[in-house]
Write a protein that binds this DNA or RNA. Sequence first.
RNA 1: GGUCCCAUCGUCUAGUGGUCUAGGAUAUCGGCCUCUCACGCCGAAGACACGGGUUCGAGUCCCGUUGGGACUGCCA
Length: 477
Amino acid sequence: MSQDNTPKIRTRFPPSPTGALHLGGARTALFNWLFARHHNGSFVLRLEDTDRERSKQEYVESILDAMDWLGLDHDEGPYYQTQRFDRYREAVEGLVAKGRAYWCHCSPEELKQKREQAMAQGGKPMYDGSCREKGLGPGPGAVVRFKGPRTGSTAWHDQVKGPISWENEEMDDLVILRSDGSPTYHLAVVVDDIDMGITHVIRGDDHVANTPRQILLYQALEAKPPVFAHIPMILGPDKTKLSKRHGATSVVAYRDMGYLPEAMLNTLARLGWSHGDQEIFSRDELIQFFDLDAVGKSAAVFDQDKLLKMNARYMQAAEPKRLLEPVRPFLAQRGIQLKPEQEPLLLKAIPELTPRTPTLADLADWAEPYLLEQPVMDPKAARKFLTPASALVLARVRDLVAEIGVNDTQAMEQAFRDLAEQNSIKLGAVAQPVRVALVGRTASPGIFEVMDILGRDRVLARLAAAADLAKNPAETS
RNA sequence: GGUCCCAUCGUCUAGUGGUCUAGGAUAUCGGCCUCUCACGCCGAAGACACGGGUUCGAGUCCCGUUGGGACUGCCA
């Protein structure tokens, strides 16, 4: 039972489908989603596809896919701006009729020339308003410009930056309708946010300079502007705006590298937002604690190492079953189709594996020896540990396994220690050859746990195969 | 160039005038643990950009300087 009289909070995320969802966009989406969820409001998804040249359906799908992966579900939409052209057209006509906008016949070429000339003379590259008072009508190549005020100032109280104000004379008359009849970003975004009842616009602070222009548009359209909150940008390691040249910047790229969405979400949330010294947040905690007042003002550099560590923590903490489906594609990349009867074995191995595997890709790598009939033998490891001298040790261990089995790890460890002592060698001198015999490499979880999971028969078979190799080391190299 | 925004360890950040000889995380280094590799634990090093104010007192408030970023499109 809701008893608040205040209008329900509505936020939106409006990506333009001209590329994949990148880290900055994902964080913006996350903050909007968290804010809506925290306040029990609605989260609207809208595709800003008015740039017909660059907008692509495949990007729409990729963005939706990424949002889905992150679990950022929307309550409304996705709306598409290309389906609302009539509405924008109507708004523009209304503005022209009221004298708040006018037709402009200046060509892009002469505009560009004027801009460059102004720059060269140290002036401001703004539209000079040549057509502002001409009272022109539509025509070939003509656009509609907003008729902004020439005096006064426009101000707002930004929810993260505080008070910001702009001299109106600093703003030129922006184009709101292109010569092809399509609306520009400024017009479409304002009309949409009005129509969709958006109460809070949370977006990257690369939009602050757009805000006063849009407020003017709200006023001309006789609508109340929403609350604005400009969150700091996410920068690359070189502190410039994140872009393709910064390597992996798309969210799905991280998914494909084996990161868990909860780790991605947690890391993104901590860029520009904090809750005391807490570092790990569940999805519910994020919703519970998130608010705009704890969002910082300065730009943040995305730290891959920290994401990796975060992912490692989530990997370790995950229930083995949670990892089963997500790891499948990474196994498949290694040519392994996980069979149903192998699942219990993998599930049992996962707790031993995850402290060593920061990503799903690593997990697949480390799980491989358990899932193949015989492990892929690393030649270097074989050369070093499967020596004629170790053949004897391997044979003794076989006897041990035949005798004790593999499920009593404590008894097996004791037996290994006794064996080492009897031969006056260190435990490692026994364990390493065995390890290489069992998994084909020099690093693995504890050797007794590996044996337990592999099971007696497989252990015996692998020890036998390794002993053969050890007797004839030439074959390995 | 102009406008606007920003400024605490390498990086993410805590800090809202005194409890800061500045806390946490990550990265780095050292140690412990140990059958390998990890995990984990312990420890070290590492920051309030600079200069003026205001104040009994400033990382915290104000001004300036410097540095960085964004915008300056018929792109969003």
